[in-house]
Design a protein around this nucleic acid. Sequence first.
DNA 1: GTCTATACCCGGATAGAC
DNA 2: GTCTATCCGGGTATAGAC
Lengths: 175, 175
Amino acid sequence: MTDQDRLTPRAREIAAAARTLVEEAGPEALTMRSLADRLGIKAPSLYKHFPDKSAVETELIAQQLAESAEAMEAAAARAPGALAALADAYRAQALAHPHLYRLATERPLPRHALPPGLEARAATPLLRVCGDDVELARAVWAFAHGMVILEIHGRFPEGVDLATAWKTGVEAFKR
Amino acid sequence: MTDQDRLTPRAREIAAAARTLVEEAGPEALTMRSLADRLGIKAPSLYKHFPDKSAVETELIAQQLAESAEAMEAAAARAPGALAALADAYRAQALAHPHLYRLATERPLPRHALPPGLEARAATPLLRVCGDDVELARAVWAFAHGMVILEIHGRFPEGVDLATAWKTGVEAFKR
DNA sequence: GTCTATACCCGGATAGAC
DNA sequence: GTCTATCCGGGTATAGAC
């Protein structure tokens, strides 16, 4: 299932504007008014294309999940079995869109409204590299998410060498 | 430095009410109006005790950091050198107050407004157990935070055995 | 598909009286 | 230390016309 199946052309334009808005100013900045402004229309018009605000957010979350999945799949294809490559891909994809990453992770997933199978698809590359050990995959995912989200929120001391911490974590989980 | 040094008695009462509010309904539910309601006063009265809302939030963040530090110090005292004990303590403290944990972690730290040394104190027990290897400590912290925050946001499949994932992570970092 | 008008509710914060 | 009155801003969403 792609955007084309889920959304009308106009809805896709609106979602694109919403995404730009989130990427530029954060999830909090996404309001029906600000979104309409960016499109040069009035807020009530949006409701002809999306039933409510959460539907817009869900579309962005689906995009982020799909693009993270793509990045991981590509990394796994380039370097089969390499946890480090997967970790790099995860980190790079997340930090390329930190606000979108926040939108997609700092709340419960709207599972019912997501394309079926998307969540599983996003998890699969890591699971495979972990030899289908789900417990290991969960631990590695927690590590990667922790690194990314702590960095996004500026929780590490300034100017810190995060590459080494990433390597330390990846090496630890390799055994 | 304790609460007693930082806050007047009335301000401490207000902070306590704010904390209850956050723990019950989440950081989003903390508004100057809802806080005043809980205290049986009007919102403008709060400004005689705190300069603004962020000052109230900062106090709660400081409390969370201090209590997390305490929990870790106690764990380290009970089981010197045991990473698992520290991980358990971190997890338990966080999950005892998930909303407060969110408030304290899902935004940049208001470092200038925090009691001096508090951030370092919170980091020290883990750093010691990691043999003062800061890179290792960062990786372990990321893992622990990732586990906690993903659980809080319901990101793991329902009814999943997180104890095993925790153990997997702790074992990986022990080597 | 977009508009205006509008309902309704929420938020932070200040001035000035008591 | 608390109040009332108020400012000013913001938000989601609907109805009904064009």
